[in-house]
Design a protein around this nucleic acid. Sequence first.
DNA 1: TTGAAAGCGGTACCAT
DNA 2: ATGGTACCGCTTTCAA
Lengths: 346, 346
Amino acid sequence: MTVTLADVAARAQVSPATVSRVLNGNYPVATATRERVLRAVDELDYVLNGPASALAAATSDLVGILVNDIADPFFGIMASAIQSEIRGPGGRAGGERLAVVCNTGGSPERELTYLTLLQRQRAAAVVLTGGAVEDCAHKEAVGAKLSKLAAAGTRVVLCGRPPAPEAIALTFDNRGGAQRLTEHLIGLGHRRLGYVAGPEERTTTRHRLEGHRAALAAAGIEDDPRLTVHGGYDRRAGYEATLELLRREPSLTAVVAANDTVALGACAALRAFGLRIPEDVSVVGFDDLPFAIDAVPALTTVRLPLAEAGARAGRIAMGREEPPPGGIAMVPGELMVRGSTGAPRD
Amino acid sequence: MTVTLADVAARAQVSPATVSRVLNGNYPVATATRERVLRAVDELDYVLNGPASALAAATSDLVGILVNDIADPFFGIMASAIQSEIRGPGGRAGGERLAVVCNTGGSPERELTYLTLLQRQRAAAVVLTGGAVEDCAHKEAVGAKLSKLAAAGTRVVLCGRPPAPEAIALTFDNRGGAQRLTEHLIGLGHRRLGYVAGPEERTTTRHRLEGHRAALAAAGIEDDPRLTVHGGYDRRAGYEATLELLRREPSLTAVVAANDTVALGACAALRAFGLRIPEDVSVVGFDDLPFAIDAVPALTTVRLPLAEAGARAGRIAMGREEPPPGGIAMVPGELMVRGSTGAPRD
DNA sequence: TTGAAAGCGGTACCAT
DNA sequence: ATGGTACCGCTTTCAA
């Protein structure tokens, strides 16, 4: 049968309480005793029972990370950064925390389901990453869940989505970044810009679009609604949206994509159309994904220190860093131009 | 305080046992009773206590997925597919399983640590993805851990690494794929091929390299050791290894990369050197990542049905699919040529 | 079909 | 510094 703490106690000739104290290291234990216990642990090849421990202590070592699309490197980088931040002291039983990466696929229902699952597991912390769905009912449901989680002692962090009273937030400057991206193209002389937006009803989609429109307005360019096409935050969506843009307005000289993954799809569509980048059409994308660098020499991106943002989220989640004033930290975008986005042809 | 199962029982005027049976749905309960219980659950907003449940039932709903690099889309795709496969009936309390994506970073120690953590959590299943480290001691340690996990009722699946007696394996044809990749270039007339290998002591690295060498040998091309450079499975490593290759042999006409991410780095390095792809140098990579498609029109890849492989791993992990004969299933690669890898210049 | 009650394996308070 | 021991909340025989 499986070895229990009592077995270890018996072998080390101490009480279960002492073994527990040694294992958790949060209580003074005589050195000789500790060694005896550790030896017994080793000899019996004892492994702590997580559920039992979590039950008794009313908390677990799990840290939930909700992402909209785990196959998107954007979230992989975030998750990676958070994960590398949650290790270290403070956790139970050896200080090892387990990151639980949950893939919501952008679905509101699954988001709630996962939050319930994490609540059920008595997670130590929960980090929600990426844009949030802008649906009133859903927003309320999530808010209620987060409140309950927080009340139960789970630390809650929002990363890349608007702040909420229930949690600490780490936000990106989506509006500002998008605005500067479009300004950059306008500065090069572009006037007919296609915009490949993200999914409707997503905060990131709306904010970035607002930034784009602000830049157009500031330059006195009419905002033709036909030049904005919505779709998912994936490559295929970028591909199809761009084809649609070309159908609607074959003479456009630049395409702004709501994120890098979408930008890749846009590039593919342009090429499929026989257009060269950036000689015929310039393409810019939001975010700063390593792989996008190679997609096309002239890809321009707004650099978001994603890894750093993720690391900060992790630190905040684990309570190592003082929550920012008002519970909100803003991570500004930093414009980065790679190669040259060409000037318009005609 | 938090609502417990006993509270629900009291409100529904039944015993805790009945509530438990309703929640787990694995026992006959009168319809009227069930409804009364469910109403109480709803009214009290009851959430099952996972640890308590796991403790009593001696098993949990957690499914561990070990990946070498969560920021690499390759693993994101795998994890995503597995995650979407593990839902459904069979799990405890509502059939909802929680995928735990663990990022080992390719480190043997962390791999073992995570396995221990999952063992501690009494995980329902564990899926190890990607190439394994080829160190005898480590291999033994992992084998021992897996045996214990299996003995404790955890299903163990290996996906993309060599089979082991302790588990069911789902393998890729690394040797064959790599061989055909190189054969393809040789067929185009290339004779001076650089090979950007993965990290040393990794099964995938060795097998793909073996395939490459087999192709060279079959074509009667000398295997110059200077034309093989090792590095990590990331973009930066591919970049640096390619620079090193160019330094050693400026006249090479093609580069074979051990995976797509590395291929991207190789492309970047060639461009930094002022070389055009594929006019000056052809590049091919292993795997089939969506983003790689856009990196350069002529990128050639070996197509691995990653999502399907991941899904199968998930199914096997959950016992929905019969383990393959001998516990091993082979997922063959399928050569896919995109655009044209050019013939050598001279 | 339902209830009673004995664990499951630790934790942490209270003693000593 | 260490031991004794009530719980933690749910599952699951065994009875009724």
